[in-house]
């Protein structure tokens, strides 16, 4: 009976198992093998040992440039996203009129497709006729050329990222709902004011959710691609050439599939490394209410 049930179970999960094996595990392992090959879509791939990895670190300055860009973006966008997400969640947790409307409004941008958001922001940040510079002109400031400026292109993308903070805001809101009311009551009895309640009750109790969003945000930031591809194509002067974008160009413009696979594996190792560091750090600042 048990064996028959097992068989039935396997039959039912087989689409997922086969899908995982064929479409995830196989490409995963194939890309590892390809990273030691030169492969330009014309079979067979030709083994070149560690050449691709050597090239990355010694012969391709754009790898370093793209890594610097991605670190810059991660260091700015992830913390800013957390601060904005938590801040908005705290504001929208208050008992005010029309709360559902506000929550919907702030959440809405995060369900707009990334490409649509990017096109919208190209217009908003247009130096001549864009809304941002038009508003700045009203207060007497001649705004920069944003996406066309080496200095402002990355901050523009960070700025735009904040717009899509609604998704994480929703998770923070759920986290806020999970904090037992008794903790606040105890704090009030102890004479804590509003700020102290946020600082010593809300934030510590929210750290597991913040930790989750930090890890997911960091992974997402390291893979940052679509917006840069649509809006700047890596320019001006490679200032928005992010790692995943560089990888994409190497693979699909210059047909260096082996080299791009090596880049993907290095990115994988970096992301795993940073995630491991975050996990190691969590005992210092993440409170699970135990």
């Amino acid at each position: 009976m048990a064996r028959r049930n097992n068989l039935a179970g396997w039959v039912l999960v087989s689409p997922v198992v086969v899908g995982l094996l064929v479409f995830t595990l196989y490409p995963f392992l194939a890309s590892l093998a390809l990273s030691f090959c030169e492969y330009d879509l014309f079979p067979p791939p030709r083994g070149v040992g560690a050449w691709n990895y050597e090239t990355m670190f010694t012969r391709d300055p754009l790898v370093w440039k793209s890594l610097t860009n991605v670190l810059y973006y991660t260091a700015l966008a992830v913390p800013l996203g957390i601060v904005m997400g938590v801040g908005l969640a705290l504001l929208l947790d208050a008992k005010i009129k029309g709360l559902a409307v506000y929550r919907t409004l702030f959440f809405l941008p995060s369900i707009v497709p990334v490409v649509a958001t990017s096109v919208l922001w190209i217009w908003l940040l247009n130096p001549q006729i864009g809304l941002v510079n038009t508003l700045l002109r009203l207060v007497g400031i001649e705004g920069p050329t944003w996406l066309a400026s080496v200095a402002w292109s990355k901050p523009s993308l960070v700025f735009m990222g904040v717009w899509g903070v609604g998704g994480s805001m929703l998770i923070y809101l759920a986290g806020l709902k999970d904090i037992p009311a008794s903790l606040y009551e105890a704090a009030v009895v102890d004479g804590a004011n509003a700020w102290q309640r946020v600082r010593y009750v809300t934030l510590p109790m929210l750290t597991p959710v913040i930790f989750f969003n930090l890890v997911m945000g960091m992974i997402g930031a390291f893979q940052y691609f679509t917006q840069a591809y649509v809006m700047t194509q890596g320019g001006p002067l490679d200032s928005t050439r992010f790692y995943a974008l560089h990888l994409f160009f190497e693979a699909f413009q210059y047909l260096k599939m082996g080299y791009a696979s090596a880049m993907a594996w290095v990115l994988f190792i970096i992301v795993v490394g940073v995630t491991a560091l975050l996990f190691r750090s969590q005992h210092r600042w993440v409170h699970y209410g135990r």
Binding site: N126, P127, Q128, I129, T145, A148
Partner: peptide, 10 residues
């Protein structure tokens, strides 16, 4: 250069 960029972007 910036002025030209600005003009052409509009």
């Amino acid at each position: 250069f910036e002025r030209i960029l600005q003009f052409e972007s509009g």
